[in-house]
Amino acid sequence: MKRLALTAAAVVATLGIASPASAVHEGSVYEAQLWPLNDSGASGTVEITVSDDGETMTVGVSADGLNLDGPHAMHIHGIVDGENVASSVCPTAADDADGDGIVDVLEGAPRYGGVQLSLTTEGDTSPESALAIERFPAGTSIDYERSGIPIPDALKPNLGKLHVVVHGVDENGNGTLDLDQDVRSSLTPDLPREGTAPAACGTLAAVATGPVQTGAGGLATDASTSNAAAGLAAAAIGAVALTATRRRRPAGQSAQ
């Protein structure tokens, strides 16, 4: 009975919502796996939980293997046009447009888009803080968590199309940020290219936080019989299951 009630509630909720734009995103959870760029060696994971009121989020970034023991600017990037967010992908080495061996921060932008939020450790989290190097995590590993980050309205239904990008790559093997590097960041002459080149990128996706209950047992022969996915001839299974179900229906009802 309880399950029936839940199902009915779910259906009502479904009928009441007409388009993807009105997707309820309160409490949603998004995850991303971080993959290395520019031979950074970095890997990691991202988890974002939207608050119950949908206005803010908690962002966790866990990464290690970074080859730059220095500051790592971290942003949520996306290709946003008004209310529309393009479903894009993280860059690859193919995006090294000038062929110099490094995908710099702007060469990656056609893939991950512009900065939408800055994942700073304190203070402002807007794009204005994109290069506030002193307020980002530093080191060869990152264990970042910050709650209460305001979500811009345009991003609320579209977090699952955004990217988390960790910047900061060691290019010359000394493991540190070379402030006097000849090649400067494509964003600002104030920083070396090492400081803003992307080290890792991951594309966010909404994930389920509970079981997807898509079966009621009508095909199950008995509690110890695995279905389907065992790779057996399913037609035969179906026939057996149907027969069994027909035989058992009265007993099954009392058992429930």
Binding site: T7, V11, G210, Q213
Partner: peptide, 13 residues
Amino acid sequence: ELQLSGPEPEVPE
């Protein structure tokens, strides 16, 4: 259309 978010993802009725 179904909603993924929540304690239990929606499934078709």
